[in-house]
Amino acid sequence: MIYSVRHTTTFRYEPAVRESLMEVRLQPRSDGDQRCLSFTLDVDPAANIMQYRDFTGNTVHHFDIAGTHKLVKVTARSSVEVQFVSAPRAADSGDWADLDALVAGNDYWEMLLPSHFAQFNPPLQQLARELGCERRGNPLGLLMEVNEAIYKLFAYVPNSTKVDSPIEDALRSRQGVCQDFAHIMIALVRGLQIPCRYVSGYMFHREKIEGGEIENDRSLEGASHAWVEALVPRLGWVAFDPTNNLVGGDRHIRVAIGRDYADVPPTRGVYKGEAQSELSVAVTVSPADSVAPEPVMPSFVVRSRPVLVRTVVRSDQEQQQQQ
């Protein structure tokens, strides 16, 4: 299956700002069952775009805009081929001993240790107990159970949490967005000593079939998406999407992988100036053979209060440790 993706991110500033620097992770990966066939990135106002690969192999593009500006618009277009793989079967996967042997012989520590958003803290331990999350059966079966449990336990409520919300918020209110579910699953799975990583990307939403199959897709169409990959012995990294209760499949397009969201935000930037900013994002995913749909309305808009950026803070100076 070949998909066309267009991802537009617009930042508006009032009043104008200057010396913006931005890093974006928008280029789909070429690994596993997926190939990025083409990728273009446009920035308005024009800027020199540079790139590098980060420590998990994601392609990062970055640029700066020196002059004053009220708007930065980043448009990424890609076409991606995703191989269909049939749903993983327990019979093909290994058992706990295989998993432990795999972990012992290789370097999976990054995806086993707690990370910024995936902390095995008391509320999470409580959830683990509630779900009976402990080693039993075989790894794949347990992972599928956890995936479904999160899907059932948590309500998908857009904008109920923010990008920098700790998972405690979602745990407390039992609602959240894909990012929260991914973080909760990562923390639970790492608690089982199974390596688990965060994936950011897109999902192709099938059209609803009236009265037909039960449609699981809860995640918001027109936005980027997040799910996880856990290491299953003999099968390798297997995708679990607790937002939509999906395992594997060919509707997910992987853009970046990391320990959690903190490693792979789609955009990250700083600027000079005291401004109110507004971020809007619009994503379209369509099969390549269909006519690309017209740009949709932004799927979400985030407004931020003015922040005074880069004023030297005395406490920061004092904090610098001099050995």
């Binding site: 620097l21 700066d64 700083v270 880069r310 030297v312 803070v313 920061d316």
Partner: peptide, 13 residues
Amino acid sequence: LCFRQDSSLGVPG
């Protein structure tokens, strides 16, 4: 840009 975003001492980029 790369490390602590609240740092007022650093140089973005």
